[in-house]
Design a protein around this nucleic acid. Sequence first.
RNA 1: UGCCCGGUCGUCUAAGGGUAGGACAGCUGGUUUUGGUCCAGUCAGUGGGGGUUCGAAUCCUCCCCGGGCAACCA
Length: 570
Amino acid sequence: MSDNTAEERNSKNFLEEIIERDLKEGRHSSVLTRFPPEPNGYLHIGHAKSISVNFGLADKYGGETNLRFDDTNPVTETIEYVESIKHDVNWLGYEWAKELYASDYFEQLFEFAIRLIRKGFAYVDDSTSEEIAAGKGTPTRPGTDSQYRDRDPEESEDLFRRMRAGEFEEETRTLRAKIDMASPNMLMRDPVIYRIKFASHHRTGDEWCIYPTYDMAHGQSDAIEKITHSLCTLEFMSHRELYDWFIDKLELFPSKQYEFARLNMSYTIMSKRRLRELVEKKYVDGWDDPRMPTISGLRRRGFTPEAIRDFCTRIGVAKRDNLIDVSLLEFCAREHLNKISLRRMVVFDPIKLVITNWPEDKFEELESENNPEDETAGSRMIPFGRELYIERADFMEDPPKKFFRLAVGRNVRLKSAFIITCDDFVKDNGGNVTEVHCRYHPESRSGSDNSGIKAKGTLHWVSIPHVHHIEVREYDRLFNVEKPVEEAAKQEGVFTDYVNPDSLNIAPAACAEPALADDFASTEKSGDNLPYFQFMRKGYYYPDKYSTREKPVFNRTVTLRDTWAKMKKK
RNA sequence: UGCCCGGUCGUCUAAGGGUAGGACAGCUGGUUUUGGUCCAGUCAGUGGGGGUUCGAAUCCUCCCCGGGCAACCA
């Protein structure tokens, strides 16, 4: 046990310090957090961070976390999103204490509003949205009082009840908190807290035609649930003053809001609005397109929940803006997938290899381990014969010294099979190599090699008569600049200008060993628990949701680290 | 130009008056029937100026830089 690990264990992030302080000082005796998504889009990796923070912290201190949908705007919210969010949180491996909805509190929030009106802390304003905006002032100029600001509380209450009754058109009246039109905090300049919307709500239907705004609902919901630590992202910082104001004026449970920096990741975007735009304008296949940073996209791509949780732990929590390198996510994926994935051999760009001293009609089944990292994973059999496919890139006519693969006069090991020596090759009229001829060494059989022959490299291969064709989809980053939104602002363009046109490359007929077809047949019922694969020397792959036995489709999650590719670049 | 946050290796994140540490990325080697994994090593940082102090990433101050704030969105 070194000092370093001890140090790591003791280091706390600022939220942990706050919680420990509150516990120690007796402010709270337990911890209750909440994850409060608005059901107006799919969850993304940034939400995973928030989920990890909220559930993780509660868990660390023996507390619980509620899942509360912030569903105060029926215009944009749907049940489809509610379902996807629940699914994603579950899939990530978290269990909420209670499933709640801000809409559960509509009646109570209405009563809160009445209470504010009667205390003189809120008033009905007949101004148009333009007039309200104009009256707000600017960050450097104070606002001006609405002409309705000093309306009698009785009159406001009456109007507010009539708003609820549906007597007024949308946009004609709002309820505003009466705070301070000169506050340096724009949000304190009499914010609108109720608005008229004749919209059906996914839970309350047509019961309401007035809906509370975020500020009227969020903190109050926290207080109703007795949330101890209400953790949100930095952009809500200036809402904190309002959050506290409501709790103070309504004399509610003193929930406290703390803000942390949201996750930003290179070569992607993290805004529901913009992700929706990618979906609607068909830049991608849907919210779960494997290139999307959504949880559903990552799942379809083949990332594991463990990898995503590990990622969220590694990125930490702080208040400074950040841009996490996507390579960290890839590292987390490789680290987990390496331990659990089944190894299979798939040749993407085949070239024929003939074992000249192997009989034409002879085939042998060779055993190969499913996962060298996991003895319990067992093994499978692979047919071997005279004619095989290997990767075109694994043979060179004119190899450099550092090339460890096939070339005339050189040896390589065929994975789980024999060492072969290359004698010759055949070219077509165009000068393309069409066949490679090799001799195998019988005494070099995998597992009982007493040939004494050395081979620098090992190749994957498939027996040509036994090939199963599969479609493989290889993905690259969705955007070709690190920060698409910032870049667009700088160049006075739009973020979609930077969508990477080569983010999807389909290999329609890669050649797979037979075992892969069997693996797939046995998992065709689909779901979230398909097996994770490593195609040897290539990368990690996961069956796509549209994959069938007739037409197997695999998504590349991430490549293997490739130091040879790096050497070639230099 | 107002208010509020923030600034530590390339990227994240620790150190809360006492040796600036870890991870990812990079680079070197070693092992290897995956040029994977694993192992070892290495490169690299406190935005700037003053001040307090025996001692400052840490406290004070001025400056610089970055972000947020003017939706009947959340």
